[in-house]
């Protein structure tokens, strides 16, 4: 694959002479400046998290650390251990919600995407259109009635109030369905069906292995959303609240804790960023089929 791209690249430069040196230079400068702007805030929080107390209050603030220290991280954990509900509980809540929400979303969305993409039942276009339209509207519009429905279902103050809506999040389904449209050919499914495999078997052992990049993308989107979920209007009990919420609460108590706050920022952002680094190529592959048809 890399060899092929290389060849095309060189060919491109000999055949297509539509690149001016000035343009290339301008674009490089633009990218560098913009890249620095994007990167600086994230860099700054990392730097802050390693500054000892006296450097945090240095005037004017420095862009580097003189004596890096883990103090902020240890003080974050000390603060955590002093919290009213054992801190491990918040961690458990976030991990539990993230795991269940993501797993359910993956299973339900894959099943639904497979049926919408590969089984020609009447009405499937309508259902997919609804999914597309829901992407256009976002979650704010229905939030009030969703709140009422969740309280009617008796899901208030229950993990399910967060998990069940996450199961029906539509972006993953949308990406998975489009990916199946262009990566799972009907002829393969037909031959499996002729061999007597049922629809569920075809789905599980033929189609699913072919859409692994889309799984991963769905998992990551779901993970990011749930991992970062903070205070929820559905959860009142302290012992059901999430890590993100707990950290925000602990740290809202003033400037003395700004070092610990930076440390928590580093921990919270490290997880999604590492996950993205590992899975970037698969996500881009999935996004290749994300286009919306007319």
């Amino acid at each position: 694959m890399t060899v092929k791209t290389k060849k095309l690249r060189t060919r491109r430069h000999t055949v297509v002479l539509s690149r001016s040196a000035g343009g290339d230079f301008g674009i490089t400068i633009f990218l560098i400046i913009l890249g620095v702007i994007m990167f600086l805030p994230l860099y700054y929080v990392v730097i802050q998290s390693f500054k000892p107390l006296d450097e945090l209050f240095y005037y004017p603030p420095k862009f580097y650390v003189i004596n890096p220290t883990w103090d902020n991280f240890t003080s974050l954990f000390t603060l955590m251990s002093e919290s009213w509900v054992p801190f491990s509980r918040y961690i458990f809540n976030t991990v539990f919600i993230t795991f269940c929400g993501t797993l359910g979303n993956l299973v339900l969305s894959s099943l639904c995407a497979y049926a919408l993409s590969k089984i020609p039942f009447p009405g499937r276009k309508f259902f997919f259109q609804l999914v597309e339209k829901s992407l256009m509207i976002g979650s704010t519009v229905g939030s009030i009635i969703t709140f009422i429905i969740i309280s009617w279902l008796g899901l208030m103050d229950n993990y399910l109030a967060i998990i069940l809506p996450a199961w029906s999040s539509t972006l993953g389904l949308y990406l998975m369905k489009n990916f199946m449209d262009s990566n799972v050919t009907t002829s393969i499914l037909e031959s499996a069906r002729l061999d007597g495999a049922g629809e569920f078997r075809t789905f599980w052992s033929i189609a699913m292995p072919m859409v692994k990049p889309a799984w991963l993308t769905l998992i990551i989107y779901s993970f990011q959303g749930l991992w970062n979920s903070g205070a929820s209007i559905f959860i009142h009990s302290e012992e059901l609240k999430t890590l993100n919420y707990a950290i925000t609460q602990i740290l809202s108590a003033g400037i003395v804790r700004s070092g610990a706050q930076a440390a928590s920022g580093v921990i919270m952002m490290a997880v999604p960023i590492i996950v993205f680094v590992v899975s970037q190529s698969k996500i881009i592959e999935t996004m290749g089929t994300s286009g919306m048809k007319d």
Binding site: S109, I119, R124, L130, G142, I145, I149, P165, W167, S168
Partner: peptide, 17 residues
């Protein structure tokens, strides 16, 4: 196959809107 997803999707997204 679409039922589990669609029931939740209607419940939490379509019906509210």
């Amino acid at each position: 196959m679409i039922a589990p997803f669609m029931i939740l999707f209607f419940l939490f997204t379509v019906i509210p809107v």
